[in-house]
Amino acid sequence: MAEAATAQSEQPQQPQANRQPYSRPVFRQKLTVNSLQAQRVMERSFDRVSNALFSLDVILRIIGDQTEINQVEEIVQGHIERVAEDMAKAMEQLKKVMSDNGIEAVPGYSAPTEYSIEITSPQIAQIARLIRNLDELMSLVDTLWLNSILSSQQRSDATYEWQQRLIKLAGRIIGMEKRARISAHSKGKDKEVAEAAPEQETTDPELSSEADVQDNEDGAKSSKKGSKESSSGAEAA
């Protein structure tokens, strides 16, 4: 018995199989972007916010229950839908101004850029659609500017406003991902999260700043909620 046990313990251990990457559905597409503002949003934020959306989903499924997952998805969806609705209204207003002035043609652009993108979730598809709509919105603004309906200052204000609106949206989503990673750390899930969804650095300072604002807002809400629950518990006691 002892000899058998010794022989068994001396047998070389089999190496653990490498973890298989999670196989997820993906659409690979080409996205052509014409305007400078939409190109800036694409280059500064698309890859990072796509990674944040994927990581957020993975992290929540590691640390949270289905109710929490649904709540976060609703918050993200709400942020995206508000921007989409406001953009649609702005486009309708600009199209009406064009129609009132008998303008039908829109300009081409001298340096369109084609991007290869991967759609791995409905939210990423919505972000890509927002960038397409931003491109169309900028075309309408430029049309009215070239026809002397909008002044250079009005054009500058409109293009900057909408560029920043999408940058801010991306920052909010990245901030939610950061908050989820902090929650994973507090629950001792750091290693599991790091393996499933490695953290990507946010190199754009404005995106990073917006993410910090969202992180702080979420932290303040959590603290306020905790205070209310503690107060309710004290009253019940």
Rank of each mutant, 00 (worst) to 15 (best):
R40Y: 10
E229K: 13
Q8V: 04
K89A: 11
A220T: 04
S152P: 05
E3H: 10
S45R: 01
M176T: 03
S186I: 06
Q200M: 13
P112L: 07
R19N: 11
K187E: 06
S116F: 06
E177H: 07
D204H: 05
A170G: 10
N70Q: 13
A52Y: 03
M91N: 13
I174C: 08
M1D: 03
W145K: 05
D157S: 08
I174S: 02
H79E: 14
V76H: 04
R132S: 14
K191S: 08
P112M: 04
E235D: 13
S35L: 04
G64I: 00
N70G: 02
A180V: 07
R155V: 04
I75Q: 08
M98V: 02
L166S: 07
A38S: 14
G188N: 09
L94Q: 14
V72M: 06
I119N: 11
D57L: 10
D157T: 12
S156H: 12
P21N: 06
W145V: 00
A90P: 05
Q8I: 09
T159V: 15
K187I: 00
Y160K: 15
T159L: 14
K30S: 14
E192I: 06
Q8R: 15
S222Q: 12
A170R: 03
V76L: 05
E177C: 04
L207D: 12
L31H: 08
T202D: 08
S231C: 01
V49G: 06
Q126T: 11
R132D: 09
S151G: 10
E10M: 15
R61T: 02
D86R: 13
G171K: 02
K224R: 10
I174Y: 09
E92K: 11
E217M: 09
A197F: 02
A180F: 03
D47T: 07
G108A: 07
K95L: 14
H79G: 01
E85F: 08
S209T: 07
I63H: 02
Q71D: 12
K89N: 10
T202K: 01
L36C: 04
S209M: 11
P122D: 01
V97W: 13
A90Q: 15
A220K: 08
E206D: 12
R28E: 06
Q163R: 11
M42Y: 03
Q14A: 14
A38H: 03
Q66G: 00
E114T: 15
E104K: 11
R132W: 00
A237V: 10
T67P: 00
T6S: 14
V213C: 03
V83Y: 04
L130M: 10
E235W: 13
E161W: 01
P122T: 04
K191E: 09
R181N: 09
Q39R: 12
S230G: 09
I124M: 13
